[in-house]
Design a protein around this nucleic acid. Structure first.
Lengths: 222, 222
DNA sequence: ATTTAATAAAGAAAAATATCTTTATTAAAT
DNA sequence: ATTTAATAAAGATATTTTTCTTTATTAAAT
C-alpha cells in the first residue's frame, strides 16, 4: 500500500488487483443463485469449492470489497451480494453506445444479462442503410455518418465497438472525440487512444487460442 | 522447467505461459494486416509499438513459437504468420458443437472470423421447438433431447455452451458424456467437469467489471 | 574494411499474483 | 463453563509474469 510523504494513503492505493476484479462477478452470480436456493450464510471455503479456486483467495478477494465474515459461520449471503453489487457498480446505471450492428453487436444489444450489471445500451450506430432507422430490442440504430461531428460532450461514458477490425481504430477515434471515457473493444485489434481513455479488449481469438493450445498439450501427453 | 529423475525434460516443459498464448492471436492479426499492406519484414520493437506492449515480451513470445528474427531486420512477415498459424493450430480444422441458440449462440454461429482460426461449428442444439429443424448460416439446429443419449464417442472435440446459466452444468455433463475434450463456456457459471476435460470460460461480466472498476478509479483520481 | 546502430536473444531483477502457514475468533459440541 | 473445530484474517512464501540489463549478431553507413 503506497503512502505519501505525509503518511496519508494515495488514491492509487485503492487499486484492487485485476484478477480479483475479474473473479468477483463469479462470486456474485453464485451468491445470487445460493440466495434463490434459500441459503442465508456461506463460508469462503464453501464458495471456493463451488468455484474451484483457492479458499484463501476467496477470503482475500472478498476482503477487498470490505465484506467481513464470522468464523464458523461465514458471510451473510444477502449482505455479501449487496456489497459486491455496490463494489462492482452493478447496482448503478451505466449507459452505453454500441457501434457496429453485425451479429455480435445485435447479440450484445439483445443480451438481457447486462441488466444484472446495470448496463444499458441506449443507442446503436452503423453505416449500413438497411439497418439505419430500425430498432433492435427497442434500441434505435442511427446513421453513424450523422453523428461523426457530434457537438459537445455526452453523458454516455461507455462505447462498445463491434465493427470489423479494419474500421475499429477510426471508430475509437470518433468515440474519443465524443468524450467517451471507456471503450469496450470486441474487434481483434489494439486500439490507440489517449491515456485518459480506458480500453477493455474482449478478444475472442485469445480464448480460442488457449483452448487449442490446451488440446494440443492433451494430445502430446497421451 | 521441470525435470524428471533421469534429467530428461518432462512433457509438461512444453507448456507456454497462458498470457503469451493469449497475446499471440494479436500478433497474428496485426501481421496479416501488415502483409496486406505489403510489408516484408517487421522487427519486434515495431510490433511492440503497434500493440503497445513491451518489446522484449514480443521477442520472448515469438521465441516460444520457434520463430527467429535477424538483427537490424526483424522477422519475415509471411514466415512469421505461418509459424504463428501453425503454432496456434489456426491452419488446422477444428469442428465444434454449440448448445444454446439464443442471441449469443446465433452470433457465434454466424461469426465469419472463426474461419480465420480454422474453427467450424458443424451443428447446433436447442430445446426450443421453434428453432429445431431450422438452420443458421447453414448450420443445422437439432433437438437436444434426441442427442441426450448419443451412443459412442464423437470425433468432435470442442463443445460451446451458450445456454442460460441455469442449464449450463447439465449441458456440460452431457458434453462430457459425448466425449467432448474441450468446453468453451459463455454461461456465467463455473462448470464442474472431470480433470481430463478442458474448460475455457469467456465470462462477459468479468470484462464489464474491469471496465466499471477502472471508470470508478478514474472518477476518484479527479 | 571498419564502424555504427538496431536488433534478437539470453539472463537477471522486479513486480504481480497465488498459495501456504499461522494466529485469533467464535459458534457449536461436550 | 470448557473444549473443539471451522473459519476469517493477516502474514510469509512460492510461483508466475513482466520488465530491465547485458551480450552477441548483423545489415547499413562510413
Amino acid at each position: 500500500m503506497e503512502k505519501s510523504v505525509l503518511g496519508v494513503e494515495k488514491r492509487k492505493s485503492v487499486a484492487v488487483p485485476e484478477p480479483a476484479i475479474r473473479r468477483m462477478p463469479s462470486y456474485l452470480t453464485l451468491l445470487r443463485q445460493l440466495r434463490n436456493d434459500g441459503l442465508e450464510y456461506i463460508s469462503a471455503p464453501r464458495l471456493a469449492v463451488h468455484l474451484d479456486i483457492d479458499p484463501t483467495q476467496v477470503v482475500k478477494d472478498l476482503a477487498y470489497t470490505g465484506a467481513t465474515g464470522r468464523p464458523r459461520i461465514g458471510y451473510v449471503v444477502a449482505d455479501l451480494i449487496e456489497i459486491l453489487e455496490e463494489f462492482l457498480g452493478f447496482n448503478r446505471k451505466h449507459e452505453a453506445f454500441i457501434i457496429g450492428v453485425g451479429f455480435l453487436g445485435s447479440a450484445l444489444i439483445q443480451y438481457q444479462g447486462f441488466r444484472e450489471a446495470g448496463m444499458k445500451i441506449v443507442a446503436a450506430f452503423d453505416t449500413d442503410k438497411k439497418k439505419i432507422g430500425t430498432d433492435i430490442a427497442g434500441v434505435p440504430v442511427f446513421d453513424l455518418a450523422k453523428f461523426r461531428d457530434l457537438a459537445g460532450r455526452l453523458h454516455i461514458t461507455i462505447g462498445i465497438i463491434t465493427t470489423p477490425a479494419a474500421s475499429a481504430q477510426q471508430i475509437a477515434d470518433l468515440m474519443v472525440g465524443w468524450g467517451i471515457k471507456a471503450i469496450w473493444n470486441f474487434a481483434p485489434v489494439s486500439l490507440k487512444v489517449p491515456s485518459h481513455v480506458i480500453v477493455q479488449n474482449t478478444h475472442i481469438y485469445s480464448n480460442l487460442a488457449v483452448i487449442l493450445n490446451k488440446l494440443e498439450q492433451l494430445k502430446k501427453a497421451e
